[in-house]
Nucleic acid binder design. Structure first.
Lengths: 198, 198
DNA sequence: GTCTATATCTGGATAGAC
DNA sequence: GTCTATCCAGATATAGAC
């Protein structure tokens, strides 16, 4: 296989996905037309369908999947230190990236909404959330091992129990960050950290 | 004004809104066509546009607004007792109704997603969430007044601080209830109650 | 007020030239 | 691989009869 062609292909795909992300974020999945993605990318119909035969849906799935898993990468990268982060710190690490570029939460709300309707998209969410859950669980367990006073029935059970709450706090953060005018991210994280064990 | 005509009008509007709710819940706002609402209601184009000139958007705003505020009504109704509910109990009260008919969270996810894109819908969300927030704040304050050990700087400040966390836990509940297979609502509420002051 | 019929528009996806 | 031109399906909203 020709090396150049392959690299080119990857680059084009990334280029198209970046354009799709911008378009979806601006107008939402459903309202975004292929024409919008075309305009954003500077390419033409044929060019895009050559790379993504699945059309709009495939573009969205690819973009949303990457976005979901990026949250996970930050957790994995940050929690490999010697001192395991506390639940509150885990939340802060994961949501820290969201604050840097404020576009992510919006596409996640789009994603959740779509997943409610489209089985194919729901399936992708399940798969990606499984990865995220595994990372969270592992990070929590490591902390509970060092703080057995909060885990009377063992670190695994404690981690499993608090996991949905931690995810829920993250999801609530996304919603409020996207919808509430003047949302105070720091205050939210402080209050969340205050209720979580530490 | 003719009494009968007015009652009839109201009844028709309710009928149409109920049909719209079913349609939006099944297919999502964007994918729902007027034809879907027509089929669901058994009426015809002219009949619906006579009552809702604003078309699909007006129907969605009306339906979503009602859904949002219904959460609030349950809190108001339940928290008027002598003993103010704790934060965990407040969450349980508000989310209790969601469990009875599992359709609400789905339309709320749709709503949040739409609010991200459409200013008119965002405005409605702001207004409705303002009402909800006021109820939550009042209920929390009443509890903190009776439990000053959790409110070193006064019940108002404590209520204001924990309010976003409580909302976030509720929003996270909606997301997980809609998307996660085998979501354990009781376990979620138990874990949330465990971290909240009581 | 309500129905049927339809005008008008938009969007996704394909065909075929280069 | 990419571009241009286009087909066709589906959707909103209106017009006019009853």
């Amino acid at each position: 296989m020709p090396k150049v062609s392959d690299a080119h292909r990857r680059a084009r795909r990334e280029e198209i996905l970046a354009a799709a992300l911008r378009a979806f974020t601006a107008k939402g999945y459903q309202r975004t037309s292929m024409a919008d993605v075309l305009a954003e990318s500077g390419l033409s119909t044929g060019a895009i369908y050559a790379h993504f035969a699945g059309g709009k849906r495939e573009l969205f799935v690819a973009v949303a999947r990457t976005t979901l898993l990026r949250r996970n990468e930050e957790l994995v990268a940050a929690s490999s230190g010697v001192e395991p982060p506390s639940p509150g710190e885990i939340l802060r690490i994961v949501l820290g990236g969201v604050l840097r570029d404020g576009i992510e939460p919006r596409i996640l709300l789009q994603l959740w909404s779509e997943a409610t309707i489209e089985p194919e998209i729901l399936e992708m969410v399940h798969e990606a959330i499984g990865v995220v859950r595994t990372s969270f669980r592992a990070a929590l367990e490591r902390w509970f091992v060092q703080h057995p006073e909060y885990a009377p029935d063992g670190p695994e059970a404690a981690a499993e129990r608090i996991l949905p709450v931690l995810l829920g706090l993250g999801q609530g953060f996304m919603v409020q960050h996207s919808l509430f005018d003047g949302f105070d991210a720091e205050a939210y994280l402080d209050a969340a950290t205050a209720v979580l064990p530490s």
